[in-house]
């Protein structure tokens, strides 16, 4: 069974998330701030960490960085009330495999955890829209690695369908490709978002106030 750690500074939220997830996964630890989270994750070595973006002593990005420093490899799913561009981009770029908002309902949350645990990327429609905006071809940014800083036509198509609210299997049917292919496109997009050399990506997104 997939082992989870929950990180959120509000005990109530943790309890809520735990209630949604404990039927399908085994929850091996909880934490309320950054150092505690790093300790728990290093000790338990869970498969997936469901992590709130804003913590009392930092952000989810700090937790991810701390875990990388301690040599712990695990998968992060960011969970936040805010889907403001600055938050999304920071967490995704530091290595989270997915980003969902607290408005997500139970079934979707379970599905998202399951998908990141298998190495898949989780995009909410809003995140997909944001990615489309961030990788816009008309934006003339000095690119160090043009291959990373552009989405292929297919990837763009997958992102547009995600932004339109399609599930992976619907996209697969619509584009007549396999779900595995859709997943690999999504993972490629996530990788580009994480590795892309656009330094101004964050600033630009913040300027545009993309929601």
């Amino acid at each position: 069974m997939t082992r989870l750690v929950l990180v959120d500074d509000h005990a109530l939220v943790r309890a809520g998330v735990r209630a949604e997830l404990e039927n399908d996964f085994s929850i091996v630890g909880e934490a309320g701030d950054v150092p505690e989270a790093i300790d728990v994750i290093a000790r338990e070595k869970p498969d997936v960490v469901v992590c709130d973006v804003h913590l009392p002593s930092g952000t989810a990005a700090n937790v991810i960085a701390g875990c990388v420093e301690r040599g712990v490899t695990t998968v992060f799913l960011a969970l936040s009330v805010s889907d403001a561009a600055e938050d999304v981009i920071e967490v995704i770029r530091s290595g989270a495999r997915g980003y969902i908002t607290k408005a997500t309902d139970g079934a979707e949350l379970v599905d998202a955890v399951r998908r990141v645990s298998t190495g898949d990327a989780v995009f909410s429609p809003r995140l997909a829209g944001f990615v489309l905006d961030a990788f816009s071809t008309e934006l003339t940014a000095p690119t160090a690695d043009p291959e990373l800083d552009q989405l292929t036509a297919r990837e763009q198509e997958v992102m547009r369908l995600l932004a339109r609210g399609y599930a992976y299997k619907e996209i697969a049917r619509r584009l007549t490709i396999s779900i595995k292919t859709v997943e690999s496109h999504a993972s490629a997009v996530l990788r580009k978002l994480q590795l892309s050399n656009r330094n101004e990506l964050t600033r630009w997104a913040a300027d545009r106030r993309i929601l």
Binding site: L132, D133, F135, S136, T137, E138, L139, E157, L161
Partner: peptide
């Protein structure tokens, strides 16, 4: 500031 994405025929 106009849109990044040129419209393409929808799938």
């Amino acid at each position: 500031r106009t849109s990044p994405i040129t419209s393409e025929p929808s799938p």
